[in-house]
Design a protein around this nucleic acid. Structure first.
Lengths: 185, 185
DNA sequence: CCCATAGGTAGACAGCGTCTACAAATCTTT
DNA sequence: AAAGATTTGTAGACGCTGTCTACCTATGGG
């Protein structure tokens, strides 16, 4: 259990408990019980440490792959969509960090590897659903991009506080059902 | 031309030219040619100033309403969807600010007023498209939420840098076409 | 004319990321 | 085993941030 991994898991805990605003380099160092300069011995800067934390998030997202039900391709895809939204709403701070380009290093090799693994898996799910009835001839990755964006927007909007002023406040599940109906209905 | 509005427009210019990271209270003050403490005479803090800037963004988004073509309800809705994406990709820094809850005050009265005006208008467009053929009986605001989220996710994903590692890089227009096809096709 | 109030300035404070100088500990090599 | 080299941790500094306070200066109403 080196200091490096200790810092990552401490940062992860701090992120979950206190939110994105709390994962400061000095704060992480203090929580980990080391001096404020210690993290820079293991990471080139804040972005590199937070990128490592974000990788944990992507990995947890990817692990949901194993929990998908055995069923038709459609069922598996809708389950994955629910899973994405569940992950976002259940881990708001992590989800925010994962898409905050100013906090992480978008070019981090591990990060692009695991994030594109997530996308690739999602695209496979979409491709499996594709039939002559449903969007034939369209690149499944393009379909996956569109659908993923829809899910992502849903998550983002809900984390953002729903439709702020409006007295209209549907549950995320209901909105997701409408979205899935548009794509798969 | 009071100092207050001068600060807002200076911040807006700084935002456009230098990005979200540059709209710091002291930076704005310096760019406006006042002392670093002056902004606090007109705003309770950074969030209030930036909220006023974000209001400008929502207003510009709302102004696009006048530029919608006269045509069928469907045409007007698809034009609005293109407009949303155009706005996001054409004003990335402003778009980011508008949805950064940690930088603005989500409860700012002017902000919730203008942002819900945007949503209400979009919901009207959706409602106009609704027919017995297309999602009959569904609350148009729910449909609007789902569709808006899809657009929003598209914008966010593209600003985020597309699909980072993937060699697969469709244009935003193509992805939007797929999304619109799913909802309206 | 005087005085209350609003608006602007300058300084201070704590916190931030990052850099550097230094000390301690660990590993390598002879 | 001894000695040198490299890694790892510490402490302080610098310039930046947002915010607070004390002060000064206009301006406008009685």
């Amino acid at each position: 259990m080196g200091t490096r991994s200790h810092l990552i898991s401490t940062a992860n805990a701090l992120l979950v408990e206190e939110g994105v605003g709390a994962v400061t380099l000095r704060g992480i160092a203090k929580a980990a019980g080391v001096s404020h300069g210690a993290p820079l011995r293991h990471f080139s800067g804040r972005a590199e440490l937070l990128s490592a934390v974000a990788v944990l998030g992507y990995r947890r997202l990817l692990e949901r792959r194993e929990q998908l039900p055995d069923g038709t391709a459609r069922e598996r895809l809708t389950a994955a969509c629910h899973g994405y939204l569940d992950f976002a709403l259940g881990n708001p701070a992590m989800f925010e960090l994962m898409f905050r380009r100013d906090l992480i290093d978008p070019g981090d090799p591990e990060l692009v590897a695991v994030s594109s693994a997530v996308f690739d898996f999602f695209a496979e799910l979409v491709a499996a659903v594709q039939t002559p009835d449903w969007h034939p001839g369209t690149d499944p990755r393009l379909l996956a991009t569109s659908l993923w964006a829809a899910l992502h927007g849903l998550a983002q909007l809900w984390l953002w506080g729903g439709l702020a002023g409006a007295s209209f406040a549907p549950s995320a599940e209901v909105a997701l059902a409408v979205t899935l109906d548009a794509y798969l209905g």
